[in-house]
Design a protein around this nucleic acid. Structure first.
Length: 402
RNA sequence: GCGUCGGUGGUAGAGCGGUCAAUUACAACAGACUGUAAAUCUGUCGCCUUCGGGCUACGAAGGUUCAAAUCCUUCCCGGCGCA
């Protein structure tokens, strides 16, 4: 079961601060959810995740289904115990892989649109996912074997993976998809949402897991609003009296949409349920999304960028592989309280990255996650203090200055 | 000393008469990354450039040829074998 309490709202915005109570502890929101796709936050031990004071970890249905298989994870007691993480957990449904292994595969298309994408997909090659009304047919990226995911099978797998919060199986569409496709896909995602609710209630009558519905609709206001209304309304139908326990906001956006389209959605979603903005995690986007009414965020960016040598500082990003860092015997960021900055220098990190030493990925991941986790905590504090707008302004000026 | 094999861009190592400023890998120098196909991917990587091109380069110096990193001669340097 999940209980969500809103403790503070920021006047004139959709922003709110609150707390989610799960069977494995509480989550103070807004909160950044650490991504541990394959039941591991890449490069980190569970002890390190705890040290970072992360509140919740999200794993992925598609990945754990393929390897080691949901049966193994179930025997371990769920993905949390499997990886020695005993706090709150979430699993994504596999819906994102409809995009990343489908339209995006082999293309330089990101879920964050720049506007320069090519909309003609006729030349796409090598796609590993195909969407039909029944579900999504995947070709495993590991061995090429074929697998069908349906709303029902996603619920079944997520049940075995055992997270506190799970997502309905949706189709994450490409930013290059035209209106007609987005509309058709949205109708399908809605049908899938109902199938997820039905299967979930069969599997979990005691409601041990909380199910989040996912709002899609691409970049079209009409579709986004329709999605928010229809997903929200599922809570009031006779078939599903309890409806969803929360909402995910998924799909493609532009940077600007995060301040606008997300707000359209949140203005219509039931206010008393948590809202999770799927796959967003850059500083500017986090500020905008909180302001637009989101409570939870997960993102691979802090850890992936860390592994690739890009580190967050309050003065912007730096690439630790750059030549200028090889003899800088100072922390990544002066004053940062993370383990990496309190023990190691830029020069050491630069050396580890140049030598392709695994410890470099670990230390960089600790720093970036610490940075983002503390950022979202600070944003939360600023909501209580009514200093959000000033904090946002000050932070962004420092981070994005030239 | 004789014989033999070899000396190519930061490194290793292709090339063996024109399509070679020279395959490839690594290194180097930058960039990208937003529900993880990702410890990944992209670009640059002799000098100059009005981006058309120009110039200097494959141990050194000569030579053959319309044309040489590629063939010949001598020299220098290194490995190996025999004295």
């Amino acid at each position: 079961m999940l209980k969500f309490t809103i403790q503070k709202k920021l006047e004139g915005t959709l922003a709110r601060a609150g707390v989610i109570e799960t069977a494995h502890g509480e989550i103070k929101t807004p909160a950044f959810v650490v991504v541990g796709t394959k039941a591991t936050v890449k490069a980190l031990t569970a002890e390190q995740i705890r040290s970072l004071e992360a509140q919740v970890v999200l794993a992925n249905t598609y990945h754990l289904y393929l390897q080691p298989g949901e049966g193994i994870v179930e025997k371990a007691g769920g993905f949390g115990p499997f990886m020695d993480w005993h706090g709150p957990t979430m699993t994504d449904s596999g819906g994102f892989q409809a995009f990343s292994l489908g339209a995006a595969f082999g293309n330089s298309v990101s879920k964050i649109a720049t506007g320069n994408e090519v909309s003609d997909k006729s030349a796409t090659v090598g796609q590993l996912a195909k969407v039909t009304d029944e579900g999504v047919m995947f070709k495993s990226h590991l061995d090429g074997s074929k697998h069908l995911f349906t709303p029902e099978s996603s619920m079944e797998i997520q049940w075995k993976l055992g997270a506190d919060m799970i997502f309905a199986f949706d189709e994450c569409t490409s930013p290059t998809a035209p209106y007609e496709y987005q509309k058709k896909s949205l109708a399908r995602t809605y049908e899938w949402a109902k199938r997820c609710l039905a299967r979930h209630e069969q599997l979990d009558p005691e409601k041990k897991q909380s199910l989040f519905g996912v709002v899609q609709g691409g970049r079209f206001q009409e579709l986004r609003e329709e999605a928010a209304r229809s997903m929200g309304a599922l809570a009031a139908t006779a078939d599903f009296p309890e409806g969803f326990d929360g909402y995910g906001i998924g799909g493609s956006f532009t940077k600007e949409d995060i301040g606008t389209a997300v707000g359209w959605v949140n203005a219509l979603l039931p206010e008393d349920k948590p809202r999770h903005l799927l796959g967003i995690g850059e500083p500017l986007d986090l500020f905008n999304a909180v302001e637009a009414g989101c409570d939870l965020f997960d993102c691979i960016a802090p850890t992936r960028m860390a592994r690739h040598g890009t580190l967050h500082t309050s003065a912007g990003r730096l690439n630790i592989r750059n030549a200028k860092f090889v003899d800088q015997f100072v922390p990544i960021e002066e004053g940062c309280t993370c383990y990496t900055c309190t023990h190691h220098t830029r020069a050491y990190l630069a050396h580890l990255f140049r030598g392709d030493e695994m410890t470099g990925a670990t230390l960089a991941s600790i720093h970036n996650l610490h940075f983002i986790l503390r950022l979202v905590e600070n944003i939360r504090e600023s909501l209580f203090d009514d200093t959000f707008h000033q904090y946002k302004k000050d932070f962004l000026e420092g981070y994005y200055k030239k």
